[in-house]
Design a protein around this nucleic acid. Structure first.
Length: 461
RNA sequence: GCCCGCUUAGCUCAGCGGUUAGAGCAUCUGGCUGUUAACCAGAGGGUCGCAGGUUCGAAUCCUGCAGCGGGCGCCA
């Protein structure tokens, strides 16, 4: 296997003849030697390669080795105690894989704006910024599995193609093989879905929660981790049409156990990323968000502040702030309210629980007060809601009554109702948006920058 | 969906009614005993987003469109 630069830094094989592969980040030329900073994606650190002009003609180096060019270079590793880098590769020869015409290659040895890089998603992974982000994204995903697997959760794959909008969460992408130019109709002028692939309407999933509940009431503790699709035309730095969501669902968990789990889970993830990616975090912090490291530290140190919705409303009313949106009991917490609670009032992550039932989903468990449901949101600084969850209504009659109140069509929910009719159990779960958490962890401010190729309303980056 | 802003060289930006539109970086040429976003000198590079309008005169003012960004809503 090709040697990587990360491996060199881990244990430098000084003096041996080595071959390294990578891309040119920068080149500097003086009279007798040229210097190439080589990167290969294995670490943010570059390898300085020294190319003596008596072994490799200067003319060739200047013609071939521009920023972005790829090569294999042979040479020996030499310690350089009096230079910024601990060692450098003294080259004896190199093979050019591919040149990068400096007249047209978009990346240069300078900082580019994130907006510009969004226009070239195929090349932006070659920047250190995106290498740092994608490595953290990978490590975070692993840590998520690690946490659940070591806590007895079963990873389940819920379907991506689904028959209906099961949560009422946003608009759906419809999936069809019917010809759009001549959609077949029945006698009543409606779309003839019996001719469609599934012989019924089909959509991309907006949540794996309902299927997750079905599996949790058999396997105990499960989690999903997969792509989710929303066709809502949201034009914000926090929304994607295709994003990744993690949804654990636990039988026999009540609301407070679930909040404990969510807090422990988030702290574990932040700690793991801090431990595994100090260099990446340092780089992103310097470049984009000076407060990054202290925010991460604050998130794992103390307890999250827990407030009931009613307490939160009271705090907002007493804040003396002039909010744009009302802070009456029964109105939903707006971004400005969440920001006040987290950034000014608590100055650490906040969990708000027991929301009015009128502003929450039908499946959330009704509290004894008749006014609220056992729902909670975890609010983080800078990004707002990172987790939303609830204890689910497990009482058949209560659930049915709520669905009827809301005028819902019960047909698609027979399975969902069935698990309340046969051996129902209290259970709870929550949803975590991977990209939103990544904003917090990387200091980025736009979710388009924490996923390799973004899909958002009107954009396929 | 509503509101606001931006669009000038390959990139980042200045110029905001008055000669031939500028800078830094990048590129090219030359120089430099080993550089660290190397440095020094020189050169090339622009239908000032698109379309219309106002004016003696528009990158600059107005209108429309497009793209991008931000705030809000919906949410993860």
């Amino acid at each position: 296997m090709p040697l990587t630069i990360a491996e060199l830094y881990a244990s430098p094989p000084l003096g041996e003849l080595l071959t390294l592969h990578g891309w040119v980040r920068t080149r500097r030329t003086t009279r007798a030697v040229s210097f190439v900073e080589l990167q290969d994606g294995s670490t943010l650190k570059a390898l300085q390669v020294v190319l003596p002009h008596d072994k490799i003609p200067r003319q060739r180096i200047e013609a071939e080795l521009h920023t972005g060019a790829s090569l294999a270079v042979q040479g020996r590793l030499k310690p350089t105690p009096d230079r910024p880098q601990p060692f450098e590769l003294e080259a004896e020869s190199y093979t050019l894989y591919g040149a990068a015409d400096p007249e047209t290659y978009p990346l240069q040895k300078k900082a580019h704006s994130l907006e510009f890089l969004r226009e070239i998603t195929h090349l932006r992974p070659r920047t250190r910024t995106f290498q740092a982000i994608f490595r953290i994204r990978s490590g975070l995903s692993f840590a998520i599995h690690q946490y659940f697997q070591s806590h007895g959760f079963v990873y389940v794959h819920t379907p991506i193609l689904t028959p209906s909008d099961c949560e009422g969460a946003g608009q759906l992408f419809q999936v069809t093989t019917l010809p759009l130019l001549s959609v077949p109709k029945n006698e009543r002028g409606e779309v003839a879905y019996e001719e469609d692939f599934f012989k019924r309407p089909a959509y991309l999933t907006v949540s794996g929660q309902l299927e997750g509940e079905l599996l949790a009431t058999a396997l105990g503790k499960i989690y999903t981790f997969g792509p989710t699709f929303r066709a809502e035309p949201s034009h914000t730095p926090r929304h994607l049409a295709e994003f990744w969501m993690i949804e654990p669902e636990m039988a026999f968990y009540d609301l407070s156990m679930t909040m404990d789990l969510a807090e422990d889970f988030l702290k574990y993830l932040v700690r793991e990323v801090m431990e595994r990616f100090p260099e990446e975090l340092e780089f992103l912090s310097e470049r984009y968000e000076p407060a990054l490291l202290s925010e991460l530290r604050k998130a794992v140190e103390g307890d999250f502040l827990r407030l009931s919705y009613s307490e939160a409303i009271e705090i907002l009313q007493k804040s003396g702030k002039n909010f744009q949106f009302p802070t009456e009991w029964g109105s939903d917490l707006q971004a400005e309210h969440e920001r006040y609670l987290v950034e000014e009032y608590a100055q650490r992550p906040v969990i708000v629980y027991n929301y009015p039932k009128s502003i929450k989903a039908f499946y959330m468990r009704q509290n004894d007060d008749g006014q609220t449901v056992a729902a909670f949101d975890v609010l983080f600084p800078r990004i707002g809601e990172v987790i939303g969850g609830s204890q689910r209504e497990e009482r058949y009659d209560k659930l049915l009554q709520r669905m009827q109140e809301l005028g819902m069509d019960l047909t698609p929910y027979q399975a969902y109702l069935d698990i309340r009719r046969y051996g129902t159990v209290p259970h709870s779960g929550f949803g975590l948006g991977l990209e939103r958490l990544l904003l917090f962890l990387t200091g980025m401010t736009n979710v388009r920058d924490v996923i390799p190729f973004f899909r958002a309303a009107g954009q396929m980056g």
